[in-house]
Design a binder for these strands. Structure first.
Lengths: 235, 235
DNA sequence: ACAAAAGTGTTGAGAGTACACCCATGC
DNA sequence: GCATGGGTGTACTCTCAACACTTTTGT
């Protein structure tokens, strides 16, 4: 069993009939859009990064390893999405694809490019090329899951750098939910929840236009309690 | 590849290192408790029904077949739960367990007993025997999922017969949620949602005590719309 | 008539939603 | 001083939660 960085035609671990593949959906917010990391395959097409679990490798570890094979990046949020295997792969055998999705904060993105350069790229939903039939479904399911989780967990913060402005946080919610939110109501809810702390600092951007925005930090200690309550972050 | 009814020591489809097993969690409400269907294994212990998918058999079909192998029962609600494979099976190889959970209305339960009699039994949470390490986790995850889904889907109705009383529906919610609900508030919410129709009939039980209860039927047409709205059935 | 379960309304509190203007900074 | 984005408060509506008595039936 070999693992190659930038490996393009993974057929999954060959297990005598049914192949097992761990498929990764990495999502990030960039350029005002939710983007997915895709890999160029040998045919010139694009697909999701994937690999096969080792015989004695736990699935989650396999997912983490596959990510490392494609990029030097620490994904702090990684969760199993779903296992796809209702569609019978045409031709050469059957593959069961166990999908994991991860959230990548924007300040970690540059690390991605180091490995497999040119074969990796972030695609927004609208520009996403045609993928392996099942992979398009997988991306849609991942988007749905993220959208659903946004309402009752603090998962959104995983897509932001350590310090962020209210406008950035709100924009993130708007991008994922696909609709605009009221500035005042948003701010009020986030602050009332107490899951964020004001650093007192302000953003000093290069070409600052307008009043500088306050910088906030996510209080991860409160995270668990937030998860417990339904719809606490619903907008 | 053989499929036996009442098969007890399933190792999963042998795929040269990693075995794939489809594990079934069937849940039902009976005797005022949420119960899980377990199978007696050769060692005398209990585990969840399971089997291996055929080489060209979609996972969902495999799950349906495995259910049929253990019982003649039509499970109208069946959903993939999670794929377990972080724990490395001790000794003889590795198994990835793809879990599906199904909901069984109480009037269909008798059919279960016809096959594999004596090797199948429904266990409430408190009396559940010790299971294969991973299987206990799987049952807990299934219970959590059901509890979560109760709030934003009409999944609860899958656990009731076609006609039911308000008290029965409420009791179902109470059992799954693990807390008592207010009769008036419950009734009001269910009726306001319009997901249930009054049949005009009343329950005529054998040893009727007290006023006969009105019988309702679930309006499945409305189901999809209900799913769309978050927390519509939260109590 | 009594025991047992079914059925029925109102009120208060809190959360969600809609909405418009002033503030700080760079140029 | 003006353009740009940041920051703030109030009023209305609706949903949730708490709460107790009357009705219908069998015995």
């Amino acid at each position: 069993m070999t693992h190659q960085v930038g490996q393009l035609d993974y057929k999954g671990h060959d297990t005598g009939g049914i192949g097992i593949s761990v498929v990764i959906i990495l999502l990030t917010i960039r350029d005002d859009a939710l983007k997915t990391l895709l890999v160029r395959s040998s045919g010139g097409g694009w697909s999701l990064p994937a690999g096969s679990p080792g015989v004695s490798e736990p699935l989650r570890k396999a997912a983490e390893r596959v990510i490392r094979e494609f990029a030097t990046i620490s994904v702090d949020y990684l969760e199993q999405l779903y296992t796809f295997g209702n569609r019978i792969a045409s031709g050469s055998g059957r593959i069961i694809e166990i999908a994991y999705y991860g959230l990548v904060p924007p300040d970690l993105i540059p690390g991605v490019e180091q490995h497999a350069a040119g074969n990796l790229a972030w695609f927004p939903e609208e520009e996403q090329p045609q993928l392996d039939g099942e992979h398009e479904l997988i991306v849609r399911v991942a988007h749905n899951r993220l959208q659903g989780k946004l309402a009752y967990t603090a998962v959104g913060f995983e897509l932001l750098p350590e310090l962020f402005t209210m406008a950035e946080l709100q924009r993130l919610y708007e991008i994922i939910l696909g609709r605009e939110l009221d500035k005042r109501n948003f701010r009020k809810k986030i602050l009332d929840l107490g899951i964020v702390e004001d650093t007192g600092e302000s953003r000093v951007a290069d070409h600052q236009r307008g009043r500088p925005a306050g910088l906030y930090r996510f209080k991860s200690q409160v995270f668990r309690n937030i998860e417990a309550k339904r719809d606490i972050l619903a907008f």
